[in-house]
Design a protein around this nucleic acid. Structure first.
Lengths: 252, 252
DNA sequence: TACTGTGAAAATGTTCACAGCC
DNA sequence: GGCTGTGAACATTTTCACAGTA
Protein backbone atom coordinates (compact mmCIF):
# COMPACT_ATOMS: atom_id res chain seq x y z
CA UNK A 1 0.00 0.00 0.00
CA UNK A 2 2.99 2.30 -0.28
CA UNK A 3 3.46 4.73 2.57
CA UNK A 4 2.53 7.43 0.06
CA UNK A 5 4.30 10.67 0.60
CA UNK A 6 2.98 13.81 -0.93
CA UNK A 7 4.92 16.78 -2.22
CA UNK A 8 8.65 17.11 -1.71
CA UNK A 9 10.54 15.29 -4.39
CA UNK A 10 12.83 12.49 -3.38
CA UNK A 11 15.54 13.87 -5.64
CA UNK A 12 17.19 16.52 -3.48
CA UNK A 13 17.22 18.66 -6.64
CA UNK A 14 20.98 19.13 -6.89
CA UNK A 15 21.69 22.35 -5.08
CA UNK A 16 18.73 24.59 -5.85
CA UNK A 17 16.48 25.10 -2.82
CA UNK A 18 12.79 24.34 -3.23
CA UNK A 19 11.86 27.88 -2.29
CA UNK A 20 14.00 29.15 -5.13
CA UNK A 21 12.57 26.68 -7.64
CA UNK A 22 9.10 27.85 -6.71
CA UNK A 23 10.05 31.41 -7.58
CA UNK A 24 11.78 30.73 -10.88
CA UNK A 25 8.49 30.67 -12.82
CA UNK A 26 7.70 34.07 -11.34
CA UNK A 27 10.96 35.53 -12.55
CA UNK A 28 10.48 33.86 -15.89
CA UNK A 29 7.13 35.50 -16.38
CA UNK A 30 8.44 38.92 -15.48
CA UNK A 31 11.41 38.43 -17.80
CA UNK A 32 9.19 37.29 -20.63
CA UNK A 33 7.16 40.46 -20.31
CA UNK A 34 10.36 42.54 -20.46
CA UNK A 35 11.56 40.55 -23.41
CA UNK A 36 8.33 41.30 -25.24
CA UNK A 37 8.93 44.97 -24.68
CA UNK A 38 12.45 44.47 -26.04
CA UNK A 39 14.09 45.59 -22.81
CA UNK A 40 17.71 44.44 -23.12
CA UNK A 41 18.84 44.42 -19.49
CA UNK A 42 17.28 44.67 -16.07
CA UNK A 43 18.61 45.25 -12.56
CA UNK A 44 17.80 42.99 -9.65
CA UNK A 45 15.80 45.85 -8.16
CA UNK A 46 13.60 46.30 -11.21
CA UNK A 47 13.08 42.64 -11.85
CA UNK A 48 12.31 41.98 -8.22
CA UNK A 49 9.63 44.67 -8.27
CA UNK A 50 8.10 43.17 -11.39
CA UNK A 51 8.06 39.72 -9.84
CA UNK A 52 6.79 40.87 -6.47
CA UNK A 53 9.77 39.84 -4.32
CA UNK A 54 12.63 41.78 -2.80
CA UNK A 55 15.90 42.22 -4.61
CA UNK A 56 18.15 40.47 -2.09
CA UNK A 57 16.09 37.34 -2.39
CA UNK A 58 16.17 37.51 -6.15
CA UNK A 59 19.92 37.90 -6.25
CA UNK A 60 20.37 35.03 -3.84
CA UNK A 61 18.04 32.90 -5.95
CA UNK A 62 19.99 33.65 -9.10
CA UNK A 63 23.25 32.92 -7.34
CA UNK A 64 22.15 29.28 -7.09
CA UNK A 65 21.89 29.13 -10.87
CA UNK A 66 25.26 30.68 -11.50
CA UNK A 67 26.65 34.14 -12.11
CA UNK A 68 24.51 35.35 -14.93
CA UNK A 69 24.59 39.07 -14.17
CA UNK A 70 27.05 41.86 -14.82
CA UNK A 71 28.07 44.07 -11.92
CA UNK A 72 27.20 47.67 -12.40
CA UNK A 73 24.80 46.76 -15.19
CA UNK A 74 22.29 44.08 -14.34
CA UNK A 75 21.05 40.97 -16.10
CA UNK A 76 20.69 40.37 -19.81
CA UNK A 77 17.01 39.66 -20.26
CA UNK A 78 17.19 37.18 -23.14
CA UNK A 79 20.05 35.28 -21.63
CA UNK A 80 18.30 34.96 -18.31
CA UNK A 81 15.07 33.84 -19.95
CA UNK A 82 17.02 31.08 -21.58
CA UNK A 83 18.90 30.04 -18.47
CA UNK A 84 15.80 29.87 -16.30
CA UNK A 85 13.82 28.06 -18.98
CA UNK A 86 16.56 25.52 -19.26
CA UNK A 87 16.80 25.11 -15.51
CA UNK A 88 13.07 24.53 -15.27
CA UNK A 89 13.16 22.06 -18.12
CA UNK A 90 10.98 24.21 -20.35
CA UNK A 91 13.21 23.98 -23.35
CA UNK A 92 11.76 20.60 -24.01
CA UNK A 93 8.23 19.59 -24.87
CA UNK A 94 6.06 18.23 -22.06
CA UNK A 95 2.97 16.40 -23.21
CA UNK A 96 0.29 16.61 -20.55
CA UNK A 97 -3.05 14.87 -20.12
CA UNK A 98 -6.00 16.36 -18.29
CA UNK A 99 -8.35 13.88 -16.68
CA UNK A 100 -11.82 15.04 -15.75
CA UNK A 101 -13.28 17.47 -18.25
CA UNK A 102 -15.87 19.20 -16.13
CA UNK A 103 -15.94 22.91 -15.64
CA UNK A 104 -12.47 23.01 -14.24
CA UNK A 105 -10.95 20.59 -16.72
CA UNK A 106 -12.34 22.62 -19.58
CA UNK A 107 -10.94 25.78 -18.06
CA UNK A 108 -7.55 24.15 -17.83
CA UNK A 109 -7.72 22.88 -21.40
CA UNK A 110 -8.41 26.42 -22.54
CA UNK A 111 -5.76 27.96 -20.35
CA UNK A 112 -3.17 29.63 -22.54
CA UNK A 113 -0.49 29.56 -19.88
CA UNK A 114 0.15 25.90 -20.56
CA UNK A 115 0.83 25.93 -24.25
CA UNK A 116 2.96 29.00 -23.87
CA UNK A 117 5.60 27.28 -21.75
CA UNK A 118 6.57 24.03 -23.34
CA UNK A 119 3.48 22.25 -22.10
CA UNK A 120 1.26 20.65 -24.68
CA UNK A 121 -2.15 19.26 -23.89
CA UNK A 122 -1.76 15.86 -25.49
CA UNK A 123 -5.17 14.55 -24.52
CA UNK A 124 -8.34 15.19 -22.59
CA UNK A 125 -9.86 12.25 -20.77
CA UNK A 126 -13.26 11.88 -19.14
CA UNK A 127 -15.26 9.02 -17.68
CA UNK A 128 -18.53 10.19 -19.20
CA UNK A 129 -19.21 8.35 -22.50
CA UNK A 130 -21.39 11.30 -23.52
CA UNK A 131 -18.30 13.48 -23.63
CA UNK A 132 -16.29 11.15 -25.86
CA UNK A 133 -15.50 12.76 -29.17
CA UNK A 134 -16.72 16.20 -28.17
CA UNK A 135 -14.02 18.77 -28.75
CA UNK A 136 -12.99 20.97 -25.85
CA UNK A 137 -10.51 23.70 -26.65
CA UNK A 138 -10.18 22.07 -30.04
CA UNK A 139 -9.17 18.70 -28.64
CA UNK A 140 -11.54 15.74 -28.73
CA UNK A 141 -12.29 14.23 -25.35
CA UNK A 142 -11.38 10.57 -25.02
CA UNK A 143 -12.82 7.95 -22.72
CA UNK A 144 -11.13 6.77 -19.55
CA UNK A 145 -11.01 3.24 -20.89
CA UNK A 146 -8.17 4.30 -23.16
CA UNK A 147 -6.19 6.08 -20.47
CA UNK A 148 -3.22 3.71 -20.41
CA UNK A 149 -2.91 3.61 -24.18
CA UNK A 150 -3.10 7.39 -24.44
CA UNK A 151 -0.38 7.87 -21.84
CA UNK A 152 1.90 5.43 -23.55
CA UNK A 153 1.25 6.52 -27.12
CA UNK A 154 2.02 10.12 -26.23
CA UNK A 155 4.87 9.48 -23.84
CA UNK A 156 3.12 11.48 -21.17
CA UNK A 157 4.86 11.89 -17.83
CA UNK A 158 2.76 14.70 -16.35
CA UNK A 159 -0.91 14.26 -15.56
CA UNK A 160 -3.48 16.76 -14.34
CA UNK A 161 -6.38 15.49 -12.24
CA UNK A 162 -9.54 17.61 -12.32
CA UNK A 163 -12.04 14.92 -11.41
CA UNK A 164 -14.37 14.90 -8.41
CA UNK A 165 -12.60 13.92 -5.20
CA UNK A 166 -14.10 10.45 -5.17
CA UNK A 167 -12.48 9.46 -8.44
CA UNK A 168 -9.10 11.10 -7.90
CA UNK A 169 -7.17 8.31 -6.20
CA UNK A 170 -8.31 5.74 -8.72
CA UNK A 171 -7.38 7.97 -11.63
CA UNK A 172 -4.08 8.68 -9.94
CA UNK A 173 -3.31 4.98 -9.59
CA UNK A 174 -4.01 4.38 -13.25
CA UNK A 175 -1.92 7.34 -14.34
CA UNK A 176 0.98 6.15 -12.23
CA UNK A 177 0.51 2.59 -13.42
CA UNK A 178 0.74 3.81 -17.00
CA UNK A 179 4.00 5.64 -16.37
CA UNK A 180 3.09 9.13 -15.21
CA UNK A 181 5.56 10.39 -12.61
CA UNK A 182 4.28 13.91 -11.91
CA UNK A 183 0.75 14.81 -10.97
CA UNK A 184 -0.99 18.12 -10.55
CA UNK A 185 -4.04 17.49 -8.40
CA UNK A 186 -7.04 19.80 -8.32
CA UNK A 187 -9.30 17.38 -6.48
CA UNK A 188 -9.60 18.10 -2.78
CA UNK A 189 -8.10 14.81 -1.63
CA UNK A 190 -4.76 13.64 -0.38
CA UNK A 191 -3.34 11.34 -3.03
CA UNK A 192 -1.22 8.36 -2.12
CA UNK A 193 1.55 7.66 -4.59
CA UNK A 194 4.64 5.45 -4.64
CA UNK A 195 8.06 6.94 -4.09
CA UNK A 196 9.47 8.64 -7.14
CA UNK A 197 6.17 10.22 -8.08
CA UNK A 198 5.67 13.92 -7.37
CA UNK A 199 2.30 15.33 -6.51
CA UNK A 200 1.47 19.00 -6.38
CA UNK A 201 -1.86 20.14 -5.16
CA UNK A 202 -3.94 23.17 -5.98
CA UNK A 203 -6.85 23.60 -3.67
CA UNK A 204 -9.18 26.46 -4.29
CA UNK A 205 -11.05 26.34 -1.04
CA UNK A 206 -7.89 26.12 1.05
CA UNK A 207 -6.67 29.40 -0.33
CA UNK A 208 -9.96 31.03 0.57
CA UNK A 209 -9.78 29.63 4.08
CA UNK A 210 -6.35 31.13 4.59
CA UNK A 211 -7.69 34.47 3.44
CA UNK A 212 -10.62 34.14 5.82
CA UNK A 213 -8.22 33.56 8.68
CA UNK A 214 -6.40 36.81 8.04
CA UNK A 215 -9.59 38.65 7.27
CA UNK A 216 -10.95 37.64 10.63
CA UNK A 217 -7.82 38.94 12.28
CA UNK A 218 -8.17 42.33 10.66
CA UNK A 219 -11.70 42.75 11.95
CA UNK A 220 -11.38 41.14 15.34
CA UNK A 221 -8.79 41.47 18.11
CA UNK A 222 -8.39 45.15 18.87
CA UNK A 223 -7.82 48.09 16.59
CA UNK A 224 -4.44 46.80 15.57
CA UNK A 225 -4.32 47.25 11.83
CA UNK A 226 -6.43 49.59 9.81
CA UNK A 227 -8.22 49.17 6.50
CA UNK A 228 -11.01 46.66 7.06
CA UNK A 229 -14.38 48.13 7.85
CA UNK A 230 -17.29 46.17 9.21
CA UNK A 231 -17.17 42.44 8.56
CA UNK A 232 -20.93 42.64 8.13
CA UNK A 233 -22.98 40.60 10.54
CA UNK A 234 -24.66 38.56 7.85
CA UNK A 235 -23.47 35.42 9.61
CA UNK A 236 -26.62 33.47 9.06
CA UNK A 237 -28.22 31.11 6.58
CA UNK A 238 -25.36 29.57 4.63
CA UNK A 239 -27.30 27.36 2.27
CA UNK A 240 -25.17 24.36 1.52
CA UNK A 241 -25.32 24.79 -2.22
CA UNK A 242 -25.22 21.91 -4.67
CA UNK A 243 -21.84 20.45 -5.42
CA UNK A 244 -21.02 21.37 -8.96
CA UNK A 245 -17.73 19.72 -9.57
CA UNK A 246 -15.53 18.40 -6.87
CA UNK A 247 -17.66 17.20 -4.02
CA UNK A 248 -15.31 18.12 -1.19
CA UNK A 249 -16.70 15.18 0.69
CA UNK A 250 -14.81 11.95 0.85
CA UNK A 251 -16.87 8.92 -0.07
CA UNK A 252 -16.41 7.14 3.24
CA UNK B 1 0.85 54.44 -5.96
CA UNK B 2 1.45 52.47 -2.78
CA UNK B 3 4.56 50.32 -2.68
CA UNK B 4 2.21 47.39 -2.92
CA UNK B 5 3.32 44.36 -1.09
CA UNK B 6 1.96 41.00 -2.03
CA UNK B 7 1.24 38.05 0.20
CA UNK B 8 2.25 37.97 3.87
CA UNK B 9 -0.32 39.72 5.96
CA UNK B 10 0.76 42.76 7.91
CA UNK B 11 -1.06 41.42 10.95
CA UNK B 12 1.48 39.08 12.51
CA UNK B 13 -1.47 36.76 13.17
CA UNK B 14 -1.18 36.60 16.95
CA UNK B 15 0.98 33.57 17.64
CA UNK B 16 0.05 31.07 14.96
CA UNK B 17 2.80 30.62 12.35
CA UNK B 18 1.86 31.05 8.72
CA UNK B 19 2.98 27.54 7.90
CA UNK B 20 0.55 26.23 10.47
CA UNK B 21 -2.33 28.36 9.25
CA UNK B 22 -1.77 27.01 5.76
CA UNK B 23 -2.23 23.48 7.05
CA UNK B 24 -5.30 24.02 9.18
CA UNK B 25 -7.67 23.68 6.20
CA UNK B 26 -6.03 20.35 5.45
CA UNK B 27 -6.67 19.07 8.93
CA UNK B 28 -10.17 20.44 8.82
CA UNK B 29 -10.97 18.53 5.68
CA UNK B 30 -9.64 15.27 7.10
CA UNK B 31 -11.56 15.84 10.32
CA UNK B 32 -14.76 16.62 8.47
CA UNK B 33 -14.49 13.32 6.67
CA UNK B 34 -14.01 11.51 9.98
CA UNK B 35 -16.92 13.38 11.46
CA UNK B 36 -19.14 12.24 8.61
CA UNK B 37 -18.18 8.69 9.35
CA UNK B 38 -19.04 9.36 12.99
CA UNK B 39 -15.54 8.59 14.18
CA UNK B 40 -15.41 9.99 17.72
CA UNK B 41 -11.68 10.35 18.32
CA UNK B 42 -8.51 10.23 16.30
CA UNK B 43 -4.82 10.02 17.14
CA UNK B 44 -2.24 12.43 15.77
CA UNK B 45 -0.80 9.55 13.79
CA UNK B 46 -4.08 8.67 12.07
CA UNK B 47 -5.09 12.24 11.41
CA UNK B 48 -1.66 13.10 10.10
CA UNK B 49 -1.85 10.22 7.64
CA UNK B 50 -5.28 11.35 6.46
CA UNK B 51 -4.04 14.90 5.97
CA UNK B 52 -0.79 13.89 4.31
CA UNK B 53 1.64 15.32 6.88
CA UNK B 54 3.71 13.73 9.62
CA UNK B 55 2.41 13.42 13.13
CA UNK B 56 5.06 15.51 14.87
CA UNK B 57 4.21 18.44 12.67
CA UNK B 58 0.53 18.01 13.31
CA UNK B 59 0.98 17.92 17.07
CA UNK B 60 3.17 20.98 16.96
CA UNK B 61 0.59 22.75 14.83
CA UNK B 62 -2.19 21.92 17.25
CA UNK B 63 -0.08 23.03 20.17
CA UNK B 64 -0.29 26.58 18.82
CA UNK B 65 -4.06 26.44 19.06
CA UNK B 66 -4.10 25.11 22.61
CA UNK B 67 -4.21 21.73 24.28
CA UNK B 68 -7.21 20.14 22.67
CA UNK B 69 -6.12 16.52 22.89
CA UNK B 70 -6.16 13.88 25.58
CA UNK B 71 -2.96 11.98 26.32
CA UNK B 72 -3.26 8.31 25.80
CA UNK B 73 -6.42 8.80 23.76
CA UNK B 74 -6.17 11.33 20.98
CA UNK B 75 -8.34 14.20 19.78
CA UNK B 76 -12.10 14.51 19.92
CA UNK B 77 -13.11 14.90 16.29
CA UNK B 78 -16.13 17.15 16.71
CA UNK B 79 -14.41 19.39 19.19
CA UNK B 80 -11.41 19.80 16.97
CA UNK B 81 -13.55 20.53 13.91
CA UNK B 82 -15.14 23.31 15.89
CA UNK B 83 -11.90 24.72 17.22
CA UNK B 84 -10.20 24.80 13.85
CA UNK B 85 -13.25 26.24 12.13
CA UNK B 86 -13.38 28.97 14.69
CA UNK B 87 -9.68 29.67 14.39
CA UNK B 88 -10.00 29.96 10.62
CA UNK B 89 -13.02 32.20 10.93
CA UNK B 90 -15.31 29.72 9.21
CA UNK B 91 -18.02 29.90 11.82
CA UNK B 92 -19.14 33.09 10.19
CA UNK B 93 -20.53 33.69 6.73
CA UNK B 94 -18.15 35.09 4.13
CA UNK B 95 -19.84 36.55 1.09
CA UNK B 96 -17.51 36.34 -1.90
CA UNK B 97 -17.67 37.83 -5.37
CA UNK B 98 -16.11 36.25 -8.42
CA UNK B 99 -15.02 38.64 -11.15
CA UNK B 100 -14.45 37.26 -14.63
CA UNK B 101 -16.89 34.55 -15.57
CA UNK B 102 -14.98 32.76 -18.28
CA UNK B 103 -14.19 29.10 -18.14
CA UNK B 104 -12.36 29.40 -14.88
CA UNK B 105 -14.81 31.76 -13.24
CA UNK B 106 -17.65 29.40 -14.09
CA UNK B 107 -15.71 26.49 -12.67
CA UNK B 108 -15.20 28.41 -9.46
CA UNK B 109 -18.85 29.38 -9.26
CA UNK B 110 -19.77 25.72 -9.54
CA UNK B 111 -17.14 24.58 -7.09
CA UNK B 112 -18.82 22.92 -4.15
CA UNK B 113 -15.88 23.39 -1.84
CA UNK B 114 -16.77 27.03 -1.34
CA UNK B 115 -20.33 26.75 -0.15
CA UNK B 116 -19.39 23.89 2.11
CA UNK B 117 -17.12 26.02 4.28
CA UNK B 118 -18.86 29.21 5.19
CA UNK B 119 -18.18 30.86 1.85
CA UNK B 120 -21.15 32.08 -0.11
CA UNK B 121 -20.91 33.26 -3.69
CA UNK B 122 -22.73 36.55 -3.32
CA UNK B 123 -22.31 37.65 -6.92
CA UNK B 124 -20.74 36.90 -10.28
CA UNK B 125 -19.39 39.83 -12.23
CA UNK B 126 -18.25 40.04 -15.83
CA UNK B 127 -17.31 42.82 -18.21
CA UNK B 128 -19.11 41.28 -21.16
CA UNK B 129 -22.61 42.82 -21.53
CA UNK B 130 -23.66 39.63 -23.33
CA UNK B 131 -23.19 37.70 -20.10
CA UNK B 132 -25.33 40.01 -17.97
CA UNK B 133 -28.39 38.25 -16.65
CA UNK B 134 -27.25 34.80 -17.75
CA UNK B 135 -27.27 32.42 -14.82
CA UNK B 136 -24.09 30.53 -14.03
CA UNK B 137 -24.33 27.97 -11.26
CA UNK B 138 -27.78 29.36 -10.62
CA UNK B 139 -26.54 32.89 -10.04
CA UNK B 140 -27.19 35.63 -12.60
CA UNK B 141 -24.06 37.32 -13.89
CA UNK B 142 -23.94 41.05 -13.29
CA UNK B 143 -22.07 43.71 -15.21
CA UNK B 144 -18.82 45.25 -14.05
CA UNK B 145 -20.44 48.68 -14.00
CA UNK B 146 -22.23 47.70 -10.82
CA UNK B 147 -19.18 46.29 -9.08
CA UNK B 148 -18.94 48.91 -6.34
CA UNK B 149 -22.63 48.74 -5.52
CA UNK B 150 -22.59 44.94 -5.41
CA UNK B 151 -19.63 44.88 -3.02
CA UNK B 152 -21.25 47.36 -0.70
CA UNK B 153 -24.76 45.95 -0.79
CA UNK B 154 -23.47 42.52 0.10
CA UNK B 155 -20.81 43.55 2.57
CA UNK B 156 -18.21 41.64 0.61
CA UNK B 157 -14.66 41.64 1.92
CA UNK B 158 -13.23 38.78 -0.16
CA UNK B 159 -12.94 38.95 -3.93
CA UNK B 160 -11.85 36.36 -6.45
CA UNK B 161 -10.25 37.53 -9.68
CA UNK B 162 -10.54 35.17 -12.63
CA UNK B 163 -10.19 37.67 -15.44
CA UNK B 164 -7.53 37.70 -18.15
CA UNK B 165 -4.21 39.06 -16.91
CA UNK B 166 -4.68 42.39 -18.63
CA UNK B 167 -7.78 43.28 -16.67
CA UNK B 168 -6.70 41.98 -13.28
CA UNK B 169 -5.01 45.06 -11.82
CA UNK B 170 -7.86 47.32 -12.78
CA UNK B 171 -10.43 44.96 -11.31
CA UNK B 172 -8.28 44.66 -8.21
CA UNK B 173 -8.14 48.44 -7.78
CA UNK B 174 -11.89 48.70 -8.03
CA UNK B 175 -12.46 45.86 -5.58
CA UNK B 176 -10.11 47.44 -3.08
CA UNK B 177 -11.64 50.85 -3.64
CA UNK B 178 -15.04 49.39 -2.86
CA UNK B 179 -13.85 47.90 0.41
CA UNK B 180 -12.52 44.43 -0.39
CA UNK B 181 -9.55 43.56 1.81
CA UNK B 182 -8.71 40.01 0.70
CA UNK B 183 -8.15 38.91 -2.85
CA UNK B 184 -7.67 35.50 -4.39
CA UNK B 185 -5.98 36.04 -7.72
CA UNK B 186 -6.10 33.49 -10.54
CA UNK B 187 -4.78 35.85 -13.19
CA UNK B 188 -1.09 35.38 -13.91
CA UNK B 189 -0.05 38.86 -12.83
CA UNK B 190 1.53 40.40 -9.80
CA UNK B 191 -1.11 42.61 -8.22
CA UNK B 192 -0.20 45.81 -6.46
CA UNK B 193 -2.36 46.56 -3.44
CA UNK B 194 -2.22 49.01 -0.55
CA UNK B 195 -1.11 47.85 2.88
CA UNK B 196 -3.79 46.06 4.81
CA UNK B 197 -5.00 44.13 1.79
CA UNK B 198 -4.05 40.47 1.47
CA UNK B 199 -3.50 38.85 -1.86
CA UNK B 200 -3.15 35.14 -2.45
CA UNK B 201 -2.27 33.83 -5.82
CA UNK B 202 -3.10 30.59 -7.55
CA UNK B 203 -1.14 30.07 -10.69
CA UNK B 204 -1.83 26.99 -12.71
CA UNK B 205 1.14 27.20 -15.01
CA UNK B 206 3.58 27.83 -12.17
CA UNK B 207 2.65 24.55 -10.54
CA UNK B 208 3.25 22.73 -13.80
CA UNK B 209 6.61 24.41 -14.20
CA UNK B 210 7.69 23.25 -10.77
CA UNK B 211 6.66 19.72 -11.68
CA UNK B 212 8.61 19.97 -14.91
CA UNK B 213 11.69 20.97 -12.96
CA UNK B 214 11.56 17.84 -10.85
CA UNK B 215 10.54 15.69 -13.76
CA UNK B 216 13.60 16.83 -15.63
CA UNK B 217 15.74 15.92 -12.64
CA UNK B 218 14.37 12.40 -12.50
CA UNK B 219 15.24 11.76 -16.11
CA UNK B 220 18.50 13.62 -16.37
CA UNK B 221 21.59 13.73 -14.13
CA UNK B 222 22.69 10.18 -13.50
CA UNK B 223 20.83 7.17 -12.17
CA UNK B 224 20.45 8.71 -8.76
CA UNK B 225 16.88 7.97 -7.85
CA UNK B 226 14.79 5.15 -9.19
CA UNK B 227 11.23 4.99 -10.46
CA UNK B 228 11.05 7.17 -13.54
CA UNK B 229 11.33 5.23 -16.79
CA UNK B 230 12.03 6.74 -20.17
CA UNK B 231 11.21 10.40 -20.46
CA UNK B 232 10.18 9.65 -24.04
CA UNK B 233 12.00 11.50 -26.73
CA UNK B 234 8.92 13.23 -28.03
CA UNK B 235 10.68 16.55 -27.64
CA UNK B 236 9.77 17.84 -31.03
CA UNK B 237 7.06 19.84 -32.72
CA UNK B 238 5.49 21.91 -30.00
CA UNK B 239 2.86 23.84 -31.86
CA UNK B 240 2.46 27.07 -29.96
CA UNK B 241 -1.29 26.80 -29.54
CA UNK B 242 -3.62 29.78 -29.42
CA UNK B 243 -3.78 31.69 -26.18
CA UNK B 244 -7.11 30.97 -24.59
CA UNK B 245 -6.77 33.22 -21.62
CA UNK B 246 -3.51 34.58 -20.41
CA UNK B 247 -0.71 35.77 -22.64
CA UNK B 248 2.90 34.63 -22.52
CA UNK B 249 4.98 32.90 -25.21
CA UNK B 250 8.59 33.81 -25.42
CA UNK B 251 9.24 35.96 -28.46
CA UNK B 252 12.99 35.89 -28.97
C1' DT C 1 0.16 1.67 28.07
C1' DA C 2 -0.58 4.78 24.50
C1' DC C 3 -0.92 8.83 23.61
C1' DT C 4 -0.17 14.30 23.67
C1' DG C 5 2.55 18.45 24.28
C1' DT C 6 6.86 20.64 23.92
C1' DG C 7 11.70 22.00 24.67
C1' DA C 8 15.88 21.65 22.03
C1' DA C 9 18.38 20.50 17.74
C1' DA C 10 18.58 20.60 12.89
C1' DA C 11 17.28 22.24 8.50
C1' DT C 12 15.61 25.56 5.59
C1' DG C 13 14.65 30.14 4.18
C1' DT C 14 15.27 35.33 4.40
C1' DT C 15 17.62 39.55 5.09
C1' DC C 16 21.64 42.36 5.85
C1' DA C 17 25.57 44.50 4.54
C1' DC C 18 29.50 44.85 2.06
C1' DA C 19 33.50 43.22 -0.85
C1' DG C 20 34.33 42.91 -5.60
C1' DC C 21 33.85 44.06 -10.29
C1' DC C 22 32.41 46.56 -14.55
C1' DG D 1 28.94 54.92 -9.26
C1' DG D 2 26.09 51.37 -9.62
C1' DC D 3 25.22 46.98 -9.37
C1' DT D 4 26.00 41.87 -8.57
C1' DG D 5 27.30 37.96 -5.67
C1' DT D 6 27.67 36.12 -1.21
C1' DG D 7 29.19 35.20 3.57
C1' DA D 8 27.19 35.79 7.96
C1' DA D 9 23.23 37.01 11.01
C1' DC D 10 18.68 36.25 11.71
C1' DA D 11 14.05 34.08 11.33
C1' DT D 12 11.06 30.45 10.48
C1' DT D 13 9.92 25.72 9.98
C1' DT D 14 10.64 20.91 10.67
C1' DT D 15 12.07 17.09 13.17
C1' DC D 16 13.60 14.61 17.19
C1' DA D 17 13.02 12.64 21.45
C1' DC D 18 11.08 12.34 25.70
C1' DA D 19 8.70 14.04 29.97
C1' DG D 20 4.08 14.09 31.45
C1' DT D 21 -0.46 12.28 31.95
C1' DA D 22 -5.19 10.26 31.30
Amino acid sequence: MATGRTHRPATRSRGIPEATVARLPLYLRALTALSERSVPTVSSEELAAAAGVNSAKLRKDFSYLGSYGTRGVGYDVEYLVYQISRELGLTQDWPVVIVGIGNLGAALANYGGFASRGFRVAALIDADPQMAGKPVAGIPVQHTDDLERIIQDNGVSIGVIATPAGAAQQVCDRLVGAGVTSILNFAPTVLTVPDGVDVRKVDLSIELQILAFHEQRKAGEDGGAAAAPTPQAAAAAADQGPDGDVPAVMPA
